[in-house]
């Protein structure tokens, strides 16, 4: 005997549907986290447009220079490396959002520490940095209390318009945001004039110089008050931090443009701005 389906109300049909949920034998699906994580890592490392594997890409690299490494550089437990790559706009993600989503997706294969996304400050009005997901908006004094090194401010620019602390990375980062002004045009992606990121980490020079060159970008070694650094211009690029286990944690520059990266003591500084090398170097040299 069958029920008369025609006479079944939506509610009854709904109830039967609810119960029928158990009748479906969903296939076992393998945990895709590993596969997905690997694809993401590969895609982040190699621009999709290029459509080449790592091996093919490596062949494109030509070592720029083979500098003699100073022990301080070589022994770094935490190293910073920069990969220049064509970067699709969709890759310009905030690491905090990416971490959070890696957690949601169950991408345990991505070796990134998962931290809860900080709740937005209720009183904070919309700012450039919150839109860019730079981390917690703080005052300069608060930021200074949260990092073990002394935050340097470029005298050339004065006090930053906004200050952020981004946690959960290899090292907590302080990000100083300067709004666009004469000489610092509004960057296409961020709307900001300049971002200065400071964090306790070292630059892996060998890594950078071996793997950095990619079409559309150029790398130049520079000095900032005698400290070693790099001027990277051209296409946006991905920045990868290597932790002590050699896991790569990727970050990206937020501006379609130029980056000045340098290290002073055990602190790495990164300026991202749509500006000239000369101006960036002047700003960097004025940091104190």
């Amino acid at each position: 005997m069958r029920s008369d389906w025609r006479a079944l109300s939506d509610e009854e049909l709904g109830r039967l549907l609810g119960e029928s949920a158990r009748a479906v034998a969903y296939p076992e699906m393998p945990d895709l986290a590993g596969l997905v994580a690997r694809r993401i890592r590969e895609e982040a490392a190699v621009p999709r447009a290029a459509g080449r594997g790592w091996a093919a890409l490596r062949d494109l690299f030509r070592p720029v220079a083979r500098p003699v490494l100073r022990p301080a550089w070589a022994k770094a437990a935490v190293t910073v490396a920069v990969i220049v790559a064509l970067l699709s706009a969709t890759l310009a993600l905030s690491p905090s959002a990416r971490r959070a989503v890696a957690g949601w997706l169950g991408l345990r294969g991505v070796k990134i520490e998962i931290t809860p996304t900080p709740a937005p400050r209720p009183t904070a009005s919309p700012t450039l940095g919150t839109g860019l997901q730079l981390g917690d908006r703080v005052t300069l004094a608060e930021a200074q209390m949260r990092v073990p090194f002394r935050i340097l401010i470029p005298a050339e620019l004065g006090s930053p318009d906004e200050v952020y602390v981004r946690t959960g990375f290899v090292a907590d980062q302080v990000i100083l945001l300067y709004r666009a002004r004469p000489g610092l045009p509004k960057a296409y992606f961020t709307g900001a004039g300049l971002l200065l990121t400071e964090f306790q980490a070292r630059i892996d020079r060998q890594f950078i110089e071996k793997k950095l060159i990619y079409e559309g970008s150029s790398l130049e070694t520079v000095k900032v008050n005698g400290d070693p650094g790099y001027w990277i211009s051209g296409n946006p690029h991905v920045v990868a931090y290597l932790d002590r286990n050699g896991n790569q944690i990727q970050d990206q520059t937020r501006l379609a443009g130029n980056v000045l990266l340098w290290q002073h003591g055990d602190v790495t500084f990164r300026i991202e701005a749509d500006t000239t090398k000369g101006r960036a170097l002047r700003i960097a040299a004025s940091a104190r």
């Binding site: 997905v36 694809r39 895609e43 706009a89 969709t90 990416r98 989503v101 890696a102 991408l107």
Partner: peptide, 18 residues
């Protein structure tokens, strides 16, 4: 699902926090 997870990850820029 695999393709969607990769796309979701890539499209995070369009995901509004909150």
């Amino acid at each position: 699902v695999q393709e969607a997870l990769v796309k979701a990850y890539r499209a995070l820029g369009r995901f509004r926090e909150g």
